[in-house]
Design a protein around this nucleic acid. Structure first.
Lengths: 146, 146
DNA sequence: GTGCTAGATTTGACTATGTCAAGTCTTTGG
DNA sequence: CCAAAGACTTGACATAGTCAAATCTAGCAC
């Protein structure tokens, strides 16, 4: 599996480095991670313990992975950028206003842009991004209790 | 009109101050302004010339106006927070990937949440936020010319 | 009109998130 | 193994915003 992560990188024309494998592996375990989540977890590499990675290196890697279509970024209002591995399926997101929990939701249509605006205003549209805002189950309970 | 801006504030239980009137007036003229757009324009007040306003004051005013439902914030990925006056009509946005231009689009349904997700995952959803990404007419031309 | 007080604003330090540029190190093909 | 393109590190810097404490003022009571 560690091997396949390396192959995945190479198949996209990227060199297989310890840092990139570590970040991909970390994202496999934690979808919707922020850059600082990854730093806090110290990006463990398989059995071999924690690996440090510079802040700049982290942003470089994430940018490279995003350019190679291996990760996708989302930026819900009020949250730092989140990185996730699911790409190419044009899915959308549920975001909790209180705790920030993010859940994936499949797109009913499947291909971007899955939704047409009422007016196009001359734009060439390539994607419809949808975020549903609300309260997650746990935060609803917390509100009900108070 | 300056008067009506003051009345609008009072009707929401906010004091009518020069700073708040100035910001509301500035937003009337420039929808989709960032905080720094407002600072750069120095927030002219009617005939009476430019008025300075501290950075903190600006954020306080914008927060107060947002709490009073007089302005709405949007945060497209890669852009600082934008403030706009249209509220309560649940409209959506077109955003240009290249120049950042933002256009309003009416919502076909009209009331939030205007769209249901395929799966709800236990969330109590109160709003569906939609951003259509693409290139505005002008940036399409620029690309075609190159 | 005057004074009071809750509410509004200012000031200045600080935080979070990220970018830029230059130099060093490493992966990979030959 | 070696060279060189590509990847990573370091450290300064930028942007967008937050926090806390002091000061000021709009709007009300008189």
């Amino acid at each position: 599996m560690e091997q396949s992560v390396g192959d995945l990188l190479k198949s996209r024309g990227l060199r297989s480095t310890a840092q990139r494998r570590a970040i991909l592996t970390a994202l496999l375990g934690h979808p919707h991670s922020t850059a600082s989540d990854l730093v806090k977890r110290r990006i463990g590499v398989g059995e071999s313990g924690p690996l440090g990675l510079s802040k700049q290196g982290l942003y470089n890697v994430l940018e490279d992975l995003a350019n190679a279509q291996l990760v996708r970024c989302i930026e819900p209002a009020g949250s730092p950028t989140l990185y996730e591995l699911r790409v190419g399926d044009n899915h959308h997101h549920l975001v909790c206003r209180k705790c920030g929990l993010v859940e994936d939701v499949d797109c009913a249509v499947g291909v971007a842009p899955c939704l047409d605006p009422v007016e196009r205003k001359g734009f060439a549209i390539d994607e419809a991004e949808i975020i549903w805002w609300g309260l997650c189950a746990q935060c609803q309970e917390a509100v009900a209790d108070s």
